[in-house]
Design a protein around this nucleic acid. Structure first.
Lengths: 200, 200
DNA sequence: GTCTATACTTCGATAGAC
DNA sequence: GTCTATCGAAGTATAGAC
């Protein structure tokens, strides 16, 4: 399926320059949004020439995809490690309550609106991340005796995902009314059914 | 505080051309994301010259602000009407479960990341919308005997907001696993505490 | 009051030099 | 294998014609 001729040469994947460009792009994305991620601005932030962006990543879409994959893979691995070590609801909540991650997601979801290649990649990742967490939530709920009728695991997961996402987005806007109440309520609710250090 | 000289002339607020530009900008925003909202593309979609965008809205920021305000005001009014007619949890859920509105929000939240004027406006609106809904949720929970300790109204509201938001965003990506389960679970949970047509 | 001609900036991308 | 010189298209915005 390597039908694209790709006439131009391209930099190696282990280049130091390439990594610098990825870092600069990610910082720009988080600080100023995806629209600020232009070849010129990325290069300037990395102290390099704009044309290097097109040498290491043929198009801007390719750059975005690499930025996304790098962080997504890391997140997925981190989640798997955390769940393997302690798959409690408390840990799953903490995993989702990640403002930086939420900001990152929003930018890419917005980007996906008009870039098909990116939409496909994000959807693929979202499904993997969902599956990984769903397994953990199912096990956690089963362990503490909450049945499927009472609270389906996927519902619990979507509530966690949704609430943490909204909290993070509002934080970024400077709107924080009710956040403290919500965070302590959720922590309390989780602690009630799934006491910390239950296995000590 | 009208210190800005604003040397250039500007179109009247009731101009038909102006409305066409606003409509075109909103369509582009929803279909292709905020990055597609450029003076050239907005004008092309409206069948007008690009310079007219700058005549009716001095800058692109001003255009974005007007697009946002127009829809935000309408949403707020719609919410107030709906709540006045029937402030049940069911209606509040339906009010939030609005895919188009969620997409609209995401674009502006992403935009707000790097445009201060827009961030301020969105924050102001978010607070008003939150306050309006919070009052209704508080009344609805009180009416059906759910106390503050059991479920603080702001928590219920953030759960509704978060879950509907995530459902809408994932829908846009083409990820729908668990959505049906979640929608019927939430509808069922609401129906259990707040039966439809309770006041008939 | 409404719109157009035009300036200037920044964009993504490629061809070709080292 | 790495980077630079350069192009054509698209971006925002203004000055001035109707």
């Amino acid at each position: 399926m390597t039908s694209a001729p790709s006439p131009r040469r391209i930099g190696t994947a282990d280049s130091k320059t390439r990594a610098q460009l990825l870092d600069a792009a990610e910082l720009l994305l988080l600080d100023e949004g995806y629209a600020a991620v232009t070849s010129r601005r990325v290069a300037a932030k990395a102290g390099l020439k704009p044309q290097l962006v097109h040498y290491y990543f043929r198009t801007m879409d390719d750059l975005f995809l690499e930025v996304f994959r790098r962080r997504a893979d890391e997140n997925l691995a981190r989640a798997e490690r955390a769940i393997a070590a302690d798959g409690s609801l408390r840990v799953l909540w903490q995993l989702n309550d990640d403002p930086r991650g939420a900001r990152f997601n929003i930018e890419f979801v917005a980007l996906a609106n008009h870039r098909k290649a990116i939409r496909t990649e994000i959807a693929r990742y979202a499904e993997r991340f969902r599956a990984t967490q769903l397994e953990a939530v199912s096990a956690a709920l089963r362990k503490i005796g909450i049945g499927d009728e009472e609270l389906p695991p996927v519902v619990a997961l979507l509530i966690m995902t949704g609430v943490t996402q909204v909290l993070a987005l509002e934080d970024a806007l400077g709107v924080t009314a009710g956040h403290e109440t919500t965070r302590s309520f959720m922590a309390g609710a989780i602690a009630r059914v799934d006491p910390p250090s239950a296995d000590v």
